[in-house]
Every structure is written in structure tokens, then in C-alpha cells.
Design a protein around this nucleic acid. Sequence first.
DNA 1: ATGCCAATACTTTTT
DNA 2: GTATTGGCAT
Length: 787
Amino acid sequence: MYSDLLANLNPEQREAVTLPPVNPHGQAQSALILAGAGSGKTRVLTTRIAWLIQTGQVSPIGVLAVTFTNKAAKEMMVRLSAMLPINTRGMWIGTFHGLCNRLLRAHHKEAGLPSTFQILDTQDQLSAIKRLLKGLKVDDEKYPPKQLQYFIAHAKERGQRAKDLAVGDDFQAKMAQLYGAYDEQCQREGVVDFAELLLRSYELLKHSEPIRTHYQERFRHILIDEFQDTNALQYAWLKLLSGHDASRVNVSGMGTSAVFAVGDDDQSIYAFRGADVENMRLYEKQFHPLLVKLEQNYRSHGHILDTANHLIANNSERLGKNLRTDAGHGEPVRIYDAPSDHAEAAWLVEEIKALVNSGIKRTEIALLYRSNAQSRIIEHNLFSAAIPYRVYGGLRFFERAEIKHALAYLRLLENPNDDTSFSRVVNFPTRGIGARSIEALQDAARAQQCSLYSAASSLEGKAGATLGGFIRLVDHMREATRHNTLPETVEFVIQHSGLIQHYLSEREGQDRVENLQELINAATAFIAEEGYGQDAAAAMLPGENAPGVVEVSPLAAFLSHASLEAGDNQAQAGQDAVQLMTVHSAKGLEFTAVFITGLEEGLFPHENSINEQDGLEEERRLMYVAITRAKERLYLSHTQSRMLHGQVRYNMPSRFLEELPSDSLKWLTPKAKDARWGGNSRSGSTWQDGYTRQREYESNDFFDSGSERQRPVKRVGSASMEVKRLASPPRGDYPFKIGQNVFHTKFGEGRVTGLEGVDTDARAQVNFKRHGIKWLQLSIAKLAAID
DNA sequence: ATGCCAATACTTTTT
DNA sequence: GTATTGGCAT
């Protein structure tokens, strides 16, 4: 029967998958799966759904599965269809935002939204806020739009409307007032931001008893991925939908639904955007889940796992979990201390060449960094060395300016009251409608309490005439495409809006023209793949007639799709390329070899997080995530000087390096220890230990120490780097260390920021508090160390 | 209305 | 170092 589903699971995975969803009293039984990195989390989640369905405990209709990313949702559907002969498309598997969108589309009336409501992405939201502030004549120096955006998002993520906010000082009161005005503006325009999708559907369920009861009774099983990343609102949503907030009317003795939550508190790295690990503890208290820990790691070799475990043990707020592996110790974790960011990047290049020579594919090599700014110099070096690479992050397809412009026209076809879209394209391409006309229009709109679009017809004079032309253009496009297919509509709009012509006449507009063409392809692909009509049909309330009563137009569905799934951001996809990304975006991925770069105080842990306990623990979890991405080889590097924000900075090595188990480490740069750590306040024992260990390894060959998988060894890479380093003056020979505080009789206090030269030519670069950076000849200058 | 230069700031990111 | 923005000149 279903035994084949469970065949390839280990005992703890099997236990998790087959946990009884009902307790001995016949009530729904929830579960919490603490799933460590690389422990087969997605597999357990997917198999759980398949098992529930195959054993007849629920029909596909009764399952709700929530993820955070579209990628995870898609993967779940693909895996599920591979396990069971069912159509996953009609199932409620998706992201929080995607599912809420589905809910609101189906019940837009009850939710107080027009059927054509549009979704604002982060960019759109910011421009809506700027427009609001301008309209209200609010000083945006005093109330920065970005800050207000953050304020609104966080309030919504806590489930709070403007009126719910406790007013502290005047500033808070004003922010709350602006929040209220923003919501009114969105309502008027028929748009919702990302957080609103969640809050609105939460309120819909809360206030509409029939709808709530319908969905509560329908979804007997709710499964949720990456539970540690949920925010307060998502948790409340989950509680409400599963009936755990006592809202469920116990008519048919339905009780609550069984929630199956999978998460890893050690991988909670999104507190900065509202995620709250506390939800895991709350969940334990309020849902009384059965607990299963998945601690068997299938990804990393022993030394790597030991390193991760050792590091994360320094965190105090943990649910407690330790990963183990059956794989051997493997390679030690290698640490490189570079004198500069240039040297670090050069070392990376050499090391990558060596790895590639040893047979590792470039796509299996990841270069991780804490912040995007660090990628530039690495890219530069990779480029010079002709090593193909791919950078993650940055603008995605649907976020590109030209695409947003085209989408804005399309949105105006659907919903002319969308002032954000209106403002975006009313004068793009330029058609002689400048700031003055817009201002007049906004005044008129405010006076009439209507949208810019509606106000345009009331405007007199020259401004009225040019605006009238724009209105006619949009109306014409709407009429002309009424019976067109979606791709035809898209093509018509990018032609007749003048976007194509505009970019064709621009010197560097060719890429943009190509992207616009690509948008037509995206529309074609969307129609072919998505089956957009099914969302609404699947959301039908019982008693409603045939599917399709709530008709969603292909265009509306495509626009939602564009907002909710901004698309891939692969600029240089395709070939076998080294992968560059931030640690955050590496979450959920794995690589044969991983380099974690820039392990310096102030960078990683980041200086903005260093002062609070919570912030530092999140940084440590981030480091934990980074380490556990590696399967076979892990490299850590830090530099003594680094160009940041246009000036050179001198950072101490990251405290995290001290928190790693010395038995698993191999230092590639022995002198670093003396130069950097000697006079430092940090506890020395680990480092003494690490140092001796390092010397032991030094005589070994680079590529075959303890490796169970032998590869042809080439003595390049770090080996050659070490020779180069030995040829230069040993840094330990200086009477001072970089980072050390010194005193000069004339210049006063300062800090050593650089050392170079030998013998009488030995010089120190010192950054004096009062006199700035100076080079001093050590044989002459009277420098004294300060302790 | 538009284009250019200087001043500014700048973790992490999905939806 | 670079992207964005605001002010000023054309």
C-alpha cells in the first residue's frame, strides 16, 4: 500500500511522517518537527501530505500547505505529484501571500476589496507613501518614507491597524496617523501591499463567520514549512484557521485541525523582517504538539558539522538539537587570514582553481558573504581570472523599470483607480505632462475624493488636454484588447504605450527592449503553465454553483503573478559557474565546497547587530546557516583591511572564529595568529590550541589530509600562496600589531592600521585620533604601545 | 521639462 | 565604490 512512501525514510523521519493526526480522544493532534539543516525537512513535509492522503485520512481538498517562497511551494507540488497520482494544482499549496491572495480574490466583496484589486510590491508601496506624504504636505525629512514604510509593515505584521497602535510620543502618533491615511489611500485606489494581503485575509476570516467556518472545516490538515520564520500575524492566521483560538463553533463536533509545523530555531535569520522564533515556543504551549527532532544530517562531513554544532552551542535561546552524521570527518575546515580584501579575493581565485582542477564542478562551489557590497571585489578577481560566476540577488525580472512600466499600463487597464500605476506612466514615455500638471491633477483628485484617473476629465486648460490624451490612450488600449489573448494584450500595450519606441531611441535601451519582448513570452508561458482560472474555482464555498462564478481574468491573474513572484534574478545563468550570494540567500541550498568570506568584526557579525544579545545570536545563526551549506569542504576567510563605503577599514577577525572547535580547523596562515591575537583581550586558549593544530597540518599535503574521497592532487592554490607569503617579511617581526593602540609624543593616540617594509625600512601606518592616517618609520618614530 | 552634477547614504530579503 | 536623489541650469 503506502509502505513504498516510507521506504526510504530513516526512523526519525518515518516517525514524523506517520505521527497520529488524531489523539486517543478523537481530537486533532498537532505536531512540531524540529528539523536540523540537511535533515530532509522538505521530504518529511511532502511525504506527510502524501501519507495522509494515501491512507485515506484526508482528501487533497482538505490539505493546506504553506511555505514562504514560491520555490519551496513549487518543489513541494512537484515532489507530491511524483509520489501520488493527483493533480496538485487544485490543492491549497502555496506561499502565505499566494494563498491569501487566492482567498481575497474569491471573497473580495466580503473583504471590502474591488474584484480588480492590485498588489503593491515594495517599490510600489514606497512610491505610494511618497505620494501620500506629498499630498498631505508632510515633511519627508521628519518622517522619512522608508521609515514609514517599515513602520506600516511591522504594525501590519503584528496584526495592528492604525487605530490599534498605542500612541507614545508625538512622532509615534504622527506615524500612526500617516499609517491610517496610507490605508485609506490604498482602499481608495483598490490596492493592497504584501502585509495587507495577510492582514486583510486574517480579518476576513475573523469577521465573517460563514467563511471562517467553511475553511476551518475544509482544512483538516494544515502543514507549514520554515515555521521559525513566521511573524505574529502569520501565527495568528494559523491559529484562527486551525481553530486554536477558540473561534471555531463546535457544531458538527469538528474541533480543531491538525497542524504539522516544520522548522529549525537555529536557522531563524529573518527577525529583522518581523519573524519571531518565539512562535515556536508559543506553538508548543498552545497547540500541545507531538515533538520529533530530525538530527540526522545527510549533507555535511563530520568536521563541518562539528564546527556548526560547536558554534551554535554559544547561543542561549535554543530549543536544543544537535546534528549528527554517518559520513566520516572529511576535510578539516580551512581558515585563511588575508592582509587585504584584494588578497582575500586573489586567494579565493587560486583556491577555486585548485578545487576545479580536483574535479569539483563550479556550480558546486559557493562564495558566501554577509552583505552584497562584498561581492564586487570578488567578482573583479573572478572576472580577471576568467572564472565563470553567477551572482544571486539584485533586480529580478518583474522588478526592472521597463517591466514595471509595462505592468503599470496593464494594471490601468484592469483598475484605472490605481494611482501608483497612473503616476508611474502618466508621463512615461514623456508626453509633456510635468510636475505642474500632476500637481493640479492631485489637487483636483483630493478635492473630489477620487482617483487621478477620474479627476483627469475635470481638468481644464492645457493640462486637461494633455491629460485627456493619456486617458484616451489607456481607454483605447483597454477597448482594443478587450477580446485579445493575454500575450496579444501585452504586445499591444508595449507597442501603443510608446515604451518600445522610447527604448529603441535610447542609446542603451536595447536590453530593455529585449526585456519587454520577454514579457510577452512570460505571458505566453503563464497562460500555458499556470491554469490561472483554478484558484477561484478551488476557493468555492459549498452551495455556490459551478466553478467559474468568481471569474478571474487572465490579465488579473498575470498581474498578481507578477507581483507575488518577481521572477528569477539570474543574470548569468546557464553555464557551469561559481555561485556568489549572501548568506541569507544561501539558506536552503547546499554545495560541495563553500567559502565564507569577510569573517570580521563589524561585518560578520555585522556592526548593527553587535550590541544587542538578540542581534548577535541571529548573526550566529546566520553563521550556522552558512557553515551547514557545505557538504565536503568549508573555507573561512577574513582580512585585516577592507575597502568599505569608499574608505579602508581595519577590522578584527570575527569572534565566531573563536567559537569553532580547534580539532576541526586548519589554519592556512600560521603567522596570523601571532600578529593578530597576541595582545588581544580575547580568550587565548582556543587559539593556542588552534595554532598547534595548524602546525601539525602544515606538513601535510593540502588535498589529502583525512579525505576518504581521494582526488588527483595538484599543488596549486593555497600551497603556492603560502610560499609567496613566506617570501615576504614575516609580520610577526614588527613590534606592533595591526589593530593595536599606540601613543606618539607629537600626534597622540592612534591605532596601527598597516605595517610594511623590513629592517630600517619598516614602517607602520597609524590612524591618529586627532591627526588622521600617517606612515611612520619605526626606526625613527617614538611610538609606544598602549594596553 | 529635462538633463547633468554634486551630495548622500549604505545589512540581510521574500512576498 | 556605487546607486540614488535633489538642486540647479539649460
